[in-house]
């Protein structure tokens, strides 16, 4: 009798899982399984699985020059976006960490990129970067076709993305800074530490848990950038800004080759997963709570 009671209690506990699991199953597990399924097929014009090709789509990917190029471009992009946006976020957070008049204006301004939709920002930048009517060439006195020159296009898109992402980083870092006890700075001053020493010995270690979290989030965010690329360059010039997410979009919704697109998605997923696992490994060594 007692065991039955226990069983019932346990069942009740599992019942509480049901709503959450249903939502996950519907919006996460099912699409994920379907993606893997589709990646094993070639699809017809309606995007329905038609011809089983096994790992054929993957084989095609890994022999395709364009795919490797896309991977390379993505990595460069992610590196620029993550480093610049975190640096921007950190600097702005440090700047407003002191109290001075008008601080609210600045703190709003620094957090603002977060509130701007990537597509809207991209449209504004498109005009600013235009070689004929854009302000950037006018100010710099140059005649560079920023978005249509292979040398600059990727950097431009990356810097725009970095700026957009810096808003959320600023928030994270501000929260992190607020958590550091003021008293330790005072004690350090008494011991004769200069500003730089305070920053490297106190601020950075104090920020390390939040630093780790922002790195992970930033990498994932950067990998998923899409709107900017779609509006500013459509993957061009040539294929120099053909980030993997954009390439997936093109294959799936433009070329209606869901099989190939699904295979790319799976590869992207695997990469992000491995990266995240590595970082969690590193976290155990480097982060002090």
């Amino acid at each position: 009798m007692k065991t039955v009671m226990k069983m019932k209690q346990r069942l009740g506990a599992y019942l509480f899982f049901v709503p959450c699991l249903t939502i996950f199953a519907l919006f996460l597990f099912y699409p994920f399984a379907k993606t893997i399924y589709l990646s094993l097929y070639k699809t017809d014009k309606l995007g329905q699985a038609k011809l089983f090709v096994g790992l054929g789509n993957y084989a095609e990917l890994f022999t395709s020059e364009s795919f490797f190029h896309s991977l390379l471009v993505t990595f460069i992009f992610v590196a620029i976006v993550v480093s610049v946006s975190m640096l921007l976020g950190l600097i702005t957070a440090l700047l407003v960490n002191k109290n001075f008049p008008g601080i609210r204006v600045f703190s709003t301004a620094y957090a603002l990129p977060m509130a701007i939709a990537s597509s809207a920002a991209a449209l504004i930048f498109e005009i600013m970067l235009d070689p004929t009517i854009g302000i950037i060439d006018k100010v710099l006195g140059t005649d560079i076709n920023w978005l249509h020159d292979e040398r600059y296009a990727l950097v431009c898109v990356a810097l725009l993305t970095a700026w957009l992402n810096s808003g959320i980083n600023y928030l994270y870092f501000s929260a992190g800074l607020a958590n550091i006890d003021e008293a330790i700075y005072e004690r350090a001053s008494v011991d004769g530490a200069n500003e730089w020493q305070k920053f490297t010995r106190l601020t950075l270690p104090g920020l390390s848990p939040i630093l780790f979290y922002t790195v992970v989030v930033n990498i994932i965010l950067a990998f998923q950038s899409f709107g900017q690329v779609k509006i500013l360059t459509e993957g061009g010039p040539g294929e120099s800004t053909n980030l993997i997410v954009y390439s997936i979009y093109r294959d799936a919704f433009f070329n209606f080759r869901f099989g190939g697109a699904a295979a790319q998605s799976v590869v992207l997923f695997t990469m992000i997963m491995i990266l995240t696992l590595i970082m969690f490994k590193l976290e155990k060594r480097g982060v002090k709570y």
Partner: peptide, 19 residues
């Protein structure tokens, strides 16, 4: 004929701007 970008409207800006 420099590279003015991809797409049908890409060439229009330079023309309308008198360049």
């Amino acid at each position: 004929a420099p590279n003015v970008g991809v797409g049908g409207d890409a060439g229009l800006t330079d023309f309308s701007a008198g360049k």
